[in-house]
């Protein structure tokens, strides 16, 4: 029997007087791939921020591993990570960026996992490890940002249009690395993308979001 990671019931989010999210019900199973499509401003990113515990919903019930939103522990929150369309890299080297998540978890021996994560996104460790965040192209920065998430072997990886502003090669490498994470560690993927054809190939289900409401895409 598959484990349900997220339960959302009657979840709304309001910015000012505008309701930007109105989800009646959403369940996300462990190890599944969920695709979310929808026009800009439809509430997709708001949903992702709630799933990443960055925003508290205005109303409704959100639970993760049967734990209510407000009771989610740091350990549980650390099982979830997110990659945005335009990543932010810390002002340090590539190695410093990728090892950051491990170090704040108290892991000091980071060399091998960092090398592996960097290779996973198609960047040669000997060439990129010592590079500064300033010396990376947009596609390389996005791949380093993904490596910084993959090194954590997350239980949930939220991808908010991760390939929207990168070249084709980077795009393919990013998506392949994300799928590898699912295959290797059973990472649950929730992906916002405009590439419906591609989502149809990989996702277990696709949801469409419009005016904050979710509906299945058949």
């Amino acid at each position: 029997m598959s484990e349900t990671l997220y339960h959302l019931e009657k979840v709304t989010q309001v910015y000012g007087h505008r309701t930007v999210l109105d989800v009646e019900s959403l369940h996300i199973e462990a190890r599944s791939i969920t695709g979310v499509i929808g026009p800009n401003g439809s509430g997709k990113s708001t949903l992702m921020r709630i799933l990443a515990f960055l925003e508290k919903p205005a109303s409704g019930r959100v639970s993760f591993q049967d734990q209510p939103f407000t009771k989610v522990t740091l350990e549980q929150r650390r099982q979830v990570t997110m990659l945005n369309q335009e990543p932010y890299l810390l002002k340090r080297s590539v190695k410093g960026n990728i090892s950051y998540g491990l170090k704040i978890r108290g892991i000091s021996d980071t060399s091998r996992p960092v090398d592996r994560a960097l290779s996973k996104v198609g960047l040669a460790p000997d060439k990129f490890l010592q590079r500064s965040w300033r010396e990376l192209s947009g596609g390389e920065a996005q791949r380093v940002a993904l490596a910084a998430r993959l090194v954590l072997k997350p239980k949930v990886l939220l991808l908010d249009e991760p390939t929207a502003s990168v070249d084709r090669e980077s795009s393919e490498l990013i998506l392949r690395a994300a799928l590898d994470a699912r295959d290797q560690w059973g990472t649950t993927l929730i992906i916002i993308s405009h590439q419906l054809t591609w989502l149809r190939q990989i996702a277990d289900r696709i949801l469409s979001m419009d005016y904050g409401r979710l509906s299945p895409v058949h």
Partner: peptide, 26 residues
């Protein structure tokens, strides 16, 4: 500071103290 910094640090698993120290370091 870039708005994405806080989001990045938190989604990488920082606790409030680590958020403070990393932000100051940035």
């Amino acid at each position: 500071l870039d708005d994405r910094l806080k989001q990045t640090i938190l989604t990488l698993g920082a606790d409030p103290r680590q958020l403070l120290l990393t932000s100051l370091w940035e």
